[in-house]
Design a protein around this nucleic acid. Structure first.
Length: 425
RNA sequence: GGAGAGGUGGCUGAGUGGUCGAAAGCGUCGGUUUGCUAAACCGAUGACCGGGUAACUGGUCCGCAGGUUCGAAUCCUGUCCUCUCCGCCA
């Protein structure tokens, strides 16, 4: 959510940003509502003041008749106040609902464009796509041969888009988790395993829409809980309604959670095997920073994501996400796309991680503030999130990039200590 | 799941209908004193929304939501959370 005052004072800028973002919000309506809200506030304040004065005078009145008279006066004022307050509340709620739909501002250097076709590549990883002297297979075929997945079983037990990991794929999942978590611990992150469910108000604070036709979220019937789509939700929610000491910032957390996504409307798109599934495990990074430190933190997160995939010896490129592809909360976003040689006819890059600077957009919705010890007042922190490893997609990249002519998989060095072997199959 | 206790400012903790945004202590900040530090003493010290160039000023907030009342931290109802004991369970 943007700052009310800021939007009113920079309405043209905000409007233009909505166009770049592909967001349709009636900002003129917002301005009109705000004007009325302001007037209503003056009226409510005035009525309140008068009612308070009357109330106080009753305590001092000695004469019983006068007392009754003043009581009646107070009664009437209170009635008016209640009505005026109700109208104010309605206006405020209506304008806030609009405000919540306004996307975050965009970084001045974020490429302007409608979708991911506008994303320029910023850099490549340490490793170049390998030249195969045989036809590389995709992860589904590899997994079938090595007995690593059971998509039919997942489908039978749960439904399309669910799967069982089996045998060495289980070890691989655990190894990837440990590799990422240990790397992040060494970088000073506090590791967590978060709940897989969260309250809808937390989801909304982070910027997700728990229910409705476009939702990507599974919600729990007869409760206000939803399955999380990412640990970003739980890690950000962890400090909701908190005032932090400026000295305590930045706070770097990482968390393992399962991620549940309905992927509504995604049928028919490239979704073979593990690429687009309804449940996967993810190690997520999250940071709370001072406002002037968030850009640096974004680069740091992006660098860590690169280090993790360099370590896995997987080629990748980093792209700068275009405005139309940013999603509501992000001010700037970098995606890391790994080379997947089994994808498409001759291999393709596929998104494996993503990191965003959400500036104060989430902090404002979740009421996460900081305070300097010697200053009055509070400010909103900046929040950032980034994928360390989305296990399902990382498995794709590992299998496809490290496959051997005999159908086995070479385990990258960094995973060997966790997996306990140098080769799968 | 059953029984009990409790949720008040950065913290501890008073406060059972108006004079309470709220005692006191701690902490923090400023000052005085003092080789330095510490101690002592004096003073200041919540957040949010709004108005004002500013000094300042209006309103809201005592877990949350309702209710009673001219008036609620205080009375009533609901709800959430925490703690203790019992039961159950991984």
């Amino acid at each position: 959510m943007l700052d009310r005052k800021f939007v009113l004072e920079n309405i043209d800028l905000v409007k233009q940003n909505c166009v770049h973002r592909g967001a349709k919000v009636d900002l003129d309506q917002f301005v009109a509502l705000e004007t009325r809200r302001k007037q209503q506030q003056i009226e409510v304040d005035d009525l309140n003041r008068r009612a308070n004065e009357v109330s106080k005078s009753i305590g001092k009145a000695q004469d019983a008749a006068e007392r009754e008279l003043r009581k009646e006066e107070g009664r009437q004022l209170r009635e008016q106040t209640t009505a005026a307050q109700a109208e104010f509340d309605a206006l405020a709620a209506e304008s806030e609902n609009l405000l919540r739909l306004v996307p975050n501002l965009s970084h001045p250097q974020a490429p302007i464009g409608a979708d991911d076709s506008a994303n320029p590549t910023l850099r490549y990883g340490q490793h170049e796509p390998r030249r195969f002297d045989f036809k590389p297979l995709d992860h589904v075929v590899l997994g079938e041969r090595l007995n690593l997945f059971d998509f039919e079983g997942g489908s039978k037990v749960t439904g399309h888009g669910f799967y069982f990991l089996k045998n060495d794929a289980v070890l691989l999942e655990l190894a990837l988790q440990q590799y990422a978590i240990n790397l992040l611990i060494a970088e000073g992150f506090t590791p967590t395993i978060t709940p897989d469910l969260a309250q809808n108000k937390i989801l909304q604070g982070i910027g997700f829409i728990p229910r409705g036709p476009e939702t990507q979220i599974y919600s729990i019937a007869d409760s206000d809980l939803s399955l999380v789509a990412t640990a970003e939700i739980t890690l950000g929610g962890l400090l909701a309604d908190t005032i932090l000491d400026a000295e305590a910032l930045p706070i770097k957390l990482c968390g393992i959670s399962h991620c549940y996504r309905t992927e509504a409307g995604a049928h028919g798109r490239a979704s073979r095997g593990l690429y687009r599934v309804h449940q996967f495990t993810k190690v997520e990074m999250f940071a709370f920073t001072l406002p002037d430190e968030s850009e640096k933190m974004l680069d740091y997160f992006c660098g860590l994501e690169g280090r993790i995939f360099d370590g896995l010896e997987i080629p990748y490129r980093v792209v700068d996400t275009a405005t139309g592809d940013l999603g509501g909360p992000a001010y700037r976003k970098f995606d890391l796309e790994a080379w997947m040689p089994g994808r498409g006819a001759a291999g393709e890059y596929g998104e494996v991680t993503s990191t965003s600077n959400c500036t104060d957009y989430q902090a404002r919705r979740l009421a996460i503030r900081y305070r300097h010890k010697q200053e009055k007042g509070t400010h909103f922190v900046h929040t950032l999130n980034g994928t360390a490893v989305a296990i399902s997609r990382a498995i794709i990249a590992v299998l496809e990039n490290h496959q051997q002519a005999d159908g086995s998989i070479r385990v990258p060095k960094v995973l060997q200590p966790y997996l306990g072997k140098e080769r799968i199959g």
